[in-house]
Structures are given as structure tokens and as C-alpha cells.
């Protein structure tokens, strides 16, 4: 099976240096478990993050020599169409560009592939040419989707942790550079939005819900333990936490 892992131009949140995004390292770990021919794919200038990706399990990376800040969609789509991988893995949000998490969806639309979001495990399916993907849903629920290849999968943060970095593997790995197909088009990501430096904004305070009524209906001093148990179970049922 041919697998391609999409790599973004992430930076370390504290130091600001080029670093591999954790989700992409987790994607590499998922691909390694599945086995087969695994390649990385990155569109952009040379980056230390690519060496780091080689150190956590990739052995080959294709780099499309696109200028910084250009829209990588067309380059990635034409490269993937030529390479024809069975499985394309990406983090649920890339970093270093628009950070909107839209790229896998646009790629799926352009290549006409099915997209399965938020994967935490991938196994080969019982039939040939299928994979079984576990998706993380809310509150610990999982969904097991069997899907025919080729498919694009985005990786959820709850996927297994990435492999440890190995310096030797990072040195040995190969990065092959491909030229951009159509250099005239590389005008930059024509964003319809204005840009300014980011300023961190406070979040809303998390407070107890307004439903906490007055003391008489929520405070019970020295009730009989049986009465206390009944109160607790009724409260759980009334608020839809559990039904007994």
C-alpha cells in the first residue's frame, strides 16, 4: 500500500523555530503501523521540520519547491494525481499557513476522493483494498468506518503518540525536491481578508450554570443516607446525565 503523509510548515509554539506538528508526527506513526511504502509530501521552502519528520519514521520526503506563502493546493493535487497513493494522511489542522484545516477537504474535492476526519486508528480491512478507520467522536464515542481505497484521512489528537526522534534516521532520510509546475501562477494566497498581528483575546469565564437555583432546593443538611442517594440519582436523571 502506498501512503503519503502531508507535512505543513509548523513552528514550535514557544520558541517559534521550525518544528514538526505533533498531529503530523502522529500521522506518521499511524502510517508506520499500517506498513507499506510511506512518503512525506511538503510544498514550500526547505525546513528543519522535514528532517524531524525523517527522524520520527519517514524515510523519503518529496518537497515541492513552492515559494513561501503561496497556495499549495494545485501543486499538491497534481503531485498526488501523478503519484497515486492509496492513503493520504494529514493532521486535522495544518500549521504555518492559513491554519484553517481546509486543505484536506479541498484536496478531496479536487481529486474526487472520500475524506474521513478525526482518525485515531487505521487498520487494513478484511477485504483487499479497504481500510478500517476508527474516528474519535465526542465523549469517548468511536465510529468504525470501513472505506475503499484511495482515501484522505485527517488525524485526531487522541491518536497514539508519535515515535521517539532518532537522529540517525533523520540523517539517513532522503528529501527529493520537485520544481513547481506553473511558476507564473505562484502569486501568493490571494486572501480576501485583511491581516494584522495577532493579539490574544480573553475567553469567556466558565461559571456555574444559571440553573443553580436558591439554597432551599440545592442544599440538604443531614438528610438520611437513603434520602441523599435518592436526591443524587434524581438530580442525575433530571439533568440527563444518566438514566437508571
Amino acid at each position: 500500500m502506498k501512503t503519503t503523509v502531508l507535512l505543513s510548515a509548523a513552528r514550535h509554539p514557544v520558541s517559534g523555530r521550525e518544528a514538526l506538528a505533533r498531529l503530523e508526527a502522529q500521522a506518521i506513526a499511524l502510517a508506520t503501523r499500517l506498513g507499506g511504502d510511506i512518503r512525506g509530501l511538503h510544498a514550500g521552502p526547505e525546513s528543519d521540520a522535514l528532517r524531524e519528520a525523517l527522524g520520527v519514521g519517514l524515510s523519503k520526503i518529496d518537497r515541492i519547491d513552492a515559494p513561501n506563502g503561496s497556495d499549495p493546493m494545485e501543486d499538491l493535487a497534481s503531485h498526488l494525481r501523478a503519484a497515486g497513493p492509496d492513503l493520504i494522511l494529514a493532521g486535522r489542522r495544518g500549521q504555518g499557513g492559513l491554519d484553517s484545516g481546509l486543505l484536506p477537504y479541498r484536496l478531496a474535492e479536487r481529486l474526487g476522493l472520500t475524506l474521513v476526519a478525526d482518525a485515531i486508528a487505521i487498520e487494513a480491512g478484511s477485504e483487499a483494498g479497504t481500510v478500517r478507520i476508527d474516528q474519535a467522536l465526542k465523549k469517548g464515542d468511536r465510529r468504525r468506518v470501513t472505506v475503499r481505497l484511495p482515501v484522505i484521512v485527517t488525524v485526531h489528537p487522541l491518536a497514539p503518540p508519535p515515535a521517539a526522534f532518532a537522529y540517525g534516521a533523520a540523517r539517513r532520510g532522503m528529501i527529493s525536491t520537485h520544481p513547481v509546475n506553473d511558476p507564473i501562477r505562484q502569486e501568493g494566497q490571494g486572501s480576501e481578508w485583511e491581516e494584522r498581528p495577532y493579539r490574544n483575546r480573553p475567553k469567556l469565564m466558565r461559571t456555574a450554570s444559571a440553573s443553580s437555583g436558591d439554597a432551599a432546593e440545592k442544599l440538604f443538611v443531614d438528610p438520611d443516607p437513603k434520602e441523599a442517594a435518592r436526591l443524587i440519582l434524581d438530580y442525575l436523571e433530571r439533568n440527563g446525565i444518566r438514566q437508571f
Binding site: P13, G16, G96, G97, L98, S100, E194, E195, Y198, R199
Partner: peptide, 28 residues
């Protein structure tokens, strides 16, 4: 359609979101 993901500031006039690893924000 135009789409703003993970908006951190929203009023009727303006919506803003972070990009490029939280170093810049785009708004409109």
C-alpha cells in the same frame, strides 16, 4: 463559499481568526 474557521472575535461588523501559527490574524 468564503469561510472563516475558528473565529476568536465576532461582532456583526467584524470577525477575526488566527493564522500562521498564531502570529497573525485575518479579519473582515
Amino acid at each position: 463559499e468564503s469561510f472563516l474557521a475558528d473565529v476568536v472575535y465576532l461582532t456583526a461588523k467584524q470577525a477575526a481568526r488566527r493564522k500562521i501559527g498564531m502570529t497573525a490574524e485575518e479579519f473582515g
